[in-house]
């Protein structure tokens, strides 16, 4: 690097040489070392700048400006190189920090709500949306609430429709595990003057040998409407509205005559088979319909049992299995699994 105090062509050489060397640096450390070599106190440039003191004022100014320009150019080159190397270093650092996001341990546990309970929530929500309240009652009942107030005096043949579990309380066969949610109707009508618009979900018990479609403990939901001027048409419309709201717009309901001691007229209600959409399949025995529950106009004898005047008030009741709805919706092949609490099942849905 001769002739540091030389002319323009020397300067150009100086800058070109510095550019080449800066470009050759591979790390920030190299760059810093080179920087002090090129621009530091012992650098050719600095020496040249110091040596200007001996020159004439004019020459000093002229050469000083020239060298200062050279210094600026080299500083710019170094800064640019530094920025570039810093970027590379940052990229390397982050690359080294790479994480496989599927390499996850200690996933927080999330519990699952029971699918029957979820079904119950959904059913409650549909009826709440239709203006109903939700009422509940005890699972242990007296014979009067479970049967007699529902128009089934002792030894009534219709009691055979329910295989009853009796408890060792009071006189024999007077305290039962409720066989249906209907006693809640009676409690509700005792507690509250009409109008009544309520659904009553809850656990029920029957002395049934478990099989794929029946379990001795099961969940039912009951509906009760008591008001002035309530007719069979209101019942049919309510059930249809529920059916399309819960199962979907293509699923409809139909009613056919049936018998329950606590309703008159009574009906079974069926809904379009959700498997085949009504075309007929094995599940619905090729009828296109699946039986869901029972319903009917509240029998005057039931109104009388709770002291309501059947000329002033009329109403309807309906009931069906929550588990059955869950079975239909989630395609549960065997209801018995619901009582096992196998965690592999509980956490599926």
């Amino acid at each position: 690097m001769s002739g540091a105090t030389g002319d323009d062509s020397n300067d150009a050489v100086l800058v070109a040489e510095a550019t080449a060397r800066v470009a050759g640096t591979a790390s920030l450390d190299d760059l810093s070392a080179l920087e002090s070599e090129l621009l530091g106190k012992k650098s050719t440039l600095a020496v040249a700048q110091r040596s200007l003191a001996a020159l004439s004022l004019e020459a000093k100014r002229e050469a000083g400006q020239r060298l200062q320009a050279v210094r600026k150019q080299i500083e710019a080159i170094v800064a640019e190189r530094r920025a570039m190397l810093e970027e590379v270093a940052r990229a390397e650092r982050l690359a080294a920090d790479r994480l496989d996001l599927t390499e996850v341990r200690g996933v927080p546990w999330r519990g699952h709500l029971h699918l029957v309970q979820r079904t119950r929530d959904e059913l409650e929500d549909v009826f709440v949306g239709m203006g109903f309240a939700v009422a509940e009652g005890p699972e242990v009942e007296t014979d009067w609430y479970n049967f007699e107030a529902l128009n089934m005096p002792p030894a009534h043949p219709a009691r055979g429709m329910w295989d009853t579990l009796y408890l060792d309380l009071g006189e024999p066969e007077t305290v039962v595990l409720r066989t249906h949610t209907s006693p809640v109707q009676i409690r509700l009508m005792q507690a509250k003057f009409p109008p009544i618009y309520a659904v009553m979900p809850g656990r029920c018990y029957r002395r049934d040998t478990p099989d794929a479609r029946h379990i001795p403990t099961f969940n039912q939901i009951e509906g009760l409407v008591i008001d002035r001027g309530i007719s069979f048409a209101d019942m049919a419309g309510t059930i249809e509205a529920f059916t399309t709201a819960y199962f979907g717009p293509d699923i409809h309901s139909r009613l056919r005559p049936s018998y329950f001691p606590f309703t008159e007229p009574s009906a079974e209600f069926e809904v379009t088979c959700t498997i085949c959409g009504g075309d007929g399949c094995r599940t619905c025995s090729h009828t296109g319909w699946i039986e869901l529950g029972g319903c009917g106009m509240v029998d005057p004898a039931v109104l009388a049992a709770v002291g309501l005047d059947d000329e002033m008030w009329s109403g309807f009741a309906f009931g069906f299995g929550i588990d059955r709805c869950a079975q239909m919706r989630h395609e549960i092949p065997d209801m018995r699994v619901l009582l096992e609490n196998d965690v592999r099942l509980l956490r599926q849905i």
């Binding site: 203006g131 309240a133 618009y197 409407v225 008001d227 309530i230 209101d234 419309g237 309510t238």
Partner: peptide
Amino acid sequence: RRRPAAPQ
């Protein structure tokens, strides 16, 4: 078929 209007 019709649907009763619940007062509540």
